[in-house]
Nucleic acid binder design. Structure first.
Lengths: 213, 213, 213, 213
DNA sequence: CATGAATGAGGTTTCATTCAT
DNA sequence: TATGAATGAAACCTCATTCAT
């Protein structure tokens, strides 16, 4: 079952010739463009292919179905963000809470703001693919990295790290989303960064219990 | 334009007869059921009508189109939650931060947990209707009530209440969503309540500046 | 599994209004017409609907998919033929071999020749649907009736009636097919009748062993 | 018109190199395999090429189109069977009816049973290519050989040999098909042989009229 | 000669919506 | 008013075939 699900999304062929690499990228970019211009409801495989300058048939040589196309777009984005968060977490191991929070928040916000168009476009399909195994797995990666990091924070212990992390994650992602959806002016992004650090640090400070080492 | 948009969603006829009231309710309930059972992608007007025990024709007598149907379901739910939050805000005017937060969080979580099935079902259509005027307006109501309340908190002042509220709101709604989507066991809901209060209060305490009165 | 298979072919809705009865018949007739005019390869649901004077949508209200459409055409025809054979078999119970064979052959050939166009058209789809449960079941009906009849023939016994019947059935159906496919002129049909009786009776006479009663 | 038709099916190039011979054979074998595994509906040129270990392009170097591919598979098989029958007929010239029938039936059944997989696979495409000139011509070969043979049978004359042969042929081919499709166990094949001889001989004995020489 | 990426017409199927009954 | 048969645009997807590399 799981294998089948995974196969449903795995790309159909690995491009061996040079030109197909170009094609795949064109399709991926076109997916985002169409998503932003027409919205998820009106995103059709034909429109994406057209936008990418190829035929539908070509699109279907690389993606077995529409969901796989959307999935791939989402996955790539979430992976990038996940990577950024993981890296930040690794860098802040054993640091005090404050720099920890700061590092992670900056990494996340930066990653999201790098291509606001993509970030925005993908919110609309995230809900559609929410149930998917891989999507969940990717989301989990970030949370696990956070949990691991928090457990190395000196002088503080969290009763239920998983839950704490979930709370923090929910706050970070959704606040960022709200800012993105209301335009993401530089000023707002600056405020977002500052306030997210405040919010997360405040929460962790209250939620954790002192630990003797 | 806006008038037109608003008209597009308003129910076609006001149910004056007793029978119509029953029918409309049946359709609304059916919408939720179908949403939960088949998912948004496979929600069809025919299926909803069938589930409600009426014909498609009848459905179209009460809703001008499918979006109006979904919209109405979402609106009703959001209104209920919005009302609860507004009431809580009114009750906590001029209270200290802690009870304020506690009151609002409890009101929100309670409202969401009253019918977890509905709450869950509607997440899938929220993104679809996200751009709609009315939906935004409803979301705004809660935030305004929160802002108004916060400004009556004794001894503390917020530089940019709108932003602060937005942050808090984002955290509250998304954490609740995460809990709902992972099953919403009584234990988790209890933790959610407690941690949300911690998180919000921590944030507000950090974010606000002392105020001389 | 079997239930699912059966459902795949069962008509989608039972026509309750008068007009739909007409529609279904028009679609069935159109299926045959298109089959004859364009061949199975070029039979498309759109073409059938067009020919029937309805829209594709209407076609799909009565048949869940293309296979069901073809299946229904085949089933109706085979049932009719099967009925004729069964009736003939019942009428010849306990008769001597000669009238038995005559009765069955006549019944079969008559049934097939009643609408040579339909008979011909369906050969092309029979192979496609050959594996299907119901098709097999219908074919079995005729053979069972034949076997039952043969076992009541006075003074003769067959070692392996099933096999004997299969042989006879294969000969009858395929010879009829050959005649149909080469034009089925009245003269040929007359010869077919006579020779089939000869062939079957000759075979049964050789194949059976005398039985003391 | 006819010339064009014939050209449509002829292989595009005559395999002169050793390698090509291997390739063509691989493709033919792959055609059968795919036919058996996926069925005619899902037989695609790409799949056949893949299975044969070559690219689609290569396939199209040897066959001008898909029909030609199927046609060639069918033709080869039918030729082989036709050869066997012709040979048997030649060997039984001027023999009495009984050995004639025996010889032909054995030859036919043996030829069909040599590769039951191929025989089975081809039934599904026979109907599709039924109208083709060459296919018909091949079928005719066997019947002509049979007719020629029967006319040399001592002491018996057939009023309409063509028709008689057609009947016999229909019985032989379809009974064999039925046995193949129900598994073709050794025991069944043995019975098929015996009963076909009975059936054909019985028929010819009844159908023919004594002849003075 | 072989490859396999690209094509795009055309197939099947769905479903929001209308309207005669 | 309620019904549900009919509509048909439009979606997804396949696959025979070509041709630049």
């Amino acid at each position: 079952m799981r294998t089948q699900e995974l196969r449903e999304f795995s790309p159909r062929k690995t491009p061996v010739q040079a030109r197909s690499g170009v094609t795949v990228e064109a399709i991926q970019e076109a997916t985002i463009q169409v998503l932003l211009e027409h919205g998820r409801e009106r995103l059709t495989t034909t429109r994406v292919a057209e936008r990418a300058g190829v035929s539908v048939g070509t699109l279907y040589q690389y993606y077995p179905n529409k969901r796989a196309l959307l999935f791939s777009a989402l996955e790539q984005h979430l992976s990038r963000v996940g990577d950024a968060v993981e890296r930040a977490c690794r860098e802040q191991l054993h640091q005090p809470l404050e720099p920890m929070v700061k590092g992670v928040v900056e990494a996340f916000v930066d990653a999201k703001m790098e291509r606001t168009d993509i970030s925005l476009a993908l919110y609309s399909i995230a809900s559609e693919l929410d149930g998917e195994v891989l999507v969940r797995r990717i989301g989990t990666r970030g949370r696990n990295a956070l949990a691991t990091m928090l457990e190395t924070a000196p002088g503080v212990r969290f009763e239920n790290v998983q839950f704490t992390v979930m709370m923090m994650f929910a706050a970070i992602t959704n606040a960022t989303r709200a800012v993105l959806e209301s335009g993401a002016s530089p000023k707002m992004v600056r405020m977002l960064r500052r306030e997210l650090v405040l919010l997360c640090h405040g929460y962790l400070a209250c939620s954790g219990t002192p630990k003797l080492e």
